[in-house]
Design a protein around this nucleic acid. Structure first.
Length: 476
DNA sequence: ATGTAC
């Protein structure tokens, strides 16, 4: 990206002054190097989002931002319904409520020494991964309805995981105001055999070791010590979320003119929050959030079964589950006045600071765990929400490394088999149904996750707590 | 992300 397009406001904060039809400025959080390498499309998309009705404060991009559908991935934007604010399917993303959860295992790296290979095989065989993967959970119409209304709470009721888990999931495991009746029969049909599966793309299940602590005190509250083994699960709402996104995107395109919304880009299709389409989308999207929460809850149950078989002394407890593709109603202080906003986070993690009432009591004093997934060959990070973050981008941070290369480019540059071999020499075991997927997801196709995380930390979006490195990765 | 293009 051309640095001349931006005005530097701080070491990691860049502004785009409103011009043309922009209603608010654009703000990108990144280091100079990250900005330099960032796709020019991010600039274009951040400014496009700034033109949408009812947007408040600014159109934001996180340090991992890259080109997405309409909105950038790594984008955050909030809309005020009382100012004609909109909700946008492309502002949430197709994989609704895609997210990461992190489990402690009570094990150290030494405990896995002899069983790592066995564990990799067992996880690969027990947790379905890949395009169109299906699992052993099959939902009839009644159960589908219950799942879409109940989320992880429904899953726990069915015997997947524990009530204690629910406390450490956003929304306590169940998104209120989900409207399963606004999810099409086709979307439900696509999902009926896909519960408890990872899917494809950047989704994974990873066994990781804690290699470094940056904030020992917070790490201790999170129950993390150097040398600990943890498990990260990254997946979303599978076919159901994608189908909802596709269908509502279409209806938002066709109703835009009726709502007097001018779109600089068809991909920004949106509807007023206070409109029929807007309300139906919100209801369906919340049902998809529940689908993703239930999905990660079932995968967790499967992972626990595998660990119980292979390392019975393990005890898997949930640190936190956080989504990074959502639109949520939140109260934020605008010019000193608490205001109800519809916050879109697309490829951006919620990062609420200490004291936030939505956090579980045991974490409230330190802040929300912010889970940032790397690539299969690089580190992941645990951060914590900051007080400052709430006034920056509504308490949001980056969600991962962010792609720096298209899938197509990556396919030309790498062979999946070579990537797996190279990682094996570094003690990282990769298991995947798709060697093509591995090539597309090669670590080299991503930005440097440490640089991205440092930028988020420097900008006070969130603060670094622990660095994790992969041991075993089941890749979708 | 995705029954990997509409």
């Amino acid at each position: 990206m051309d640095l001349n397009l931006l005005k530097r406001r701080g070491p990691d904060e860049w502004h785009i002054a409103p011009r043309g039809k922009m209603r608010v400025p654009g703000v990108i959080y990144a280091t100079e190097d990250l900005i330099h390498d960032m796709d020019e499309k991010v600039y274009e998309q951040v400014t496009n989002v700034a033109t949408l009705p009812g947007i408040v404060q600014a159109s934001y991009a996180m340090p991992d931002a890259h080109w997405g559908y309409g909105f950038p991935i790594g984008g955050v934007a909030a809309f005020d319904p009382d100012l004609g604010g909109v909700v946008s399917a492309g502002g949430v993303g197709f994989d609704i409520s895609c997210g990461v959860r992190l489990l402690r295992t009570g094990l150290t790296v030494e405990d896995l020494q002899l069983v790592k290979e066995l564990l990799a095989e067992a996880l690969f065989h027990r947790i379905p991964a890949g395009v169109g993967s299906t699992g052993k959970v099959h939902l009839d119409r009644y159960e589908m309805q219950a799942m879409l209304a109940g989320g992880a709470r429904w899953a726990v009721g069915k015997g997947y995981g524990t009530h204690e888990d629910l406390e450490f999931i956003e929304e306590h495991g169940c998104m209120d105001d989900a409207k399963p009746e606004h999810v099409s029969d086709f979307a439900k049909k696509r999902q009926q055999d896909e519960m408890g599966t990872l899917g494809s793309g950047n989704h994974y299940l990873e066994v990781q070791q804690v290699v470094r602590l940056f904030d020992v005190e917070t790490a201790s509250v999170f129950g993390l010590r150097a040398g600990d083994v943890v498990v990260s699960i990254h997946c979303g709402s599978r076919g159901l979320g994608h189908q909802i996104g596709t269908e509502f995107l279409k209806s938002m395109v066709t109703t835009a003119a009726r709502h007097h919304i001018e779109l600089p880009d068809r991909e920004l299709a949106c509807a007023p929050i206070n409109s029929e389409v807007g309300q139906e989308y919100l209801g369906a999207m919340r049902a998809a959030i529940n689908c993703a929460l239930a999905n990660r809850q079932i995968v967790t149950h499967l992972v626990r079964q595998v660990f119980a078989d292979i390392v019975p002394q393990a005890s898997l407890s949930l640190l936190y589950d956080v989504s990074h593709n959502t639109c949520k109603v939140e109260e934020h202080v605008m010019d000193g006045i608490p205001t109800r906003l519809f916050v879109h986070r697309k490829g951006a993690t919620r990062a609420f600071g200490p004291g936030h009432p939505d956090l579980p009591p045991s974490l409230r004093s330190v802040g929300q765990p912010v889970l940032i997934g790397g690539t299969m060959g690089t580190a992941s990070y645990v951060l914590v929400g900051t007080k400052e973050s709430m006034a920056l981008a509504y308490g949001s941070a980056c969600h991962g490394a962010g792609r720096s290369m298209s899938r197509h480019q990556a396919l030309r540059q790498w062979h999946g088999r070579d990537v797996v071999k190279e990682l094996a020499t570094r003690g990282i075991l990769i298991r995947s149904p798709s060697m093509r997927g591995i090539a597309e997801e090669a670590p080299g196709a991503y930005k440097d996750v440490s640089e991205v995380v440092d930028a988020a930390d420097d900008a006070s979006l969130a603060r670094k707590v622990a660095r994790l490195e992969p041991l075993v990765c089941v890749k979708g």
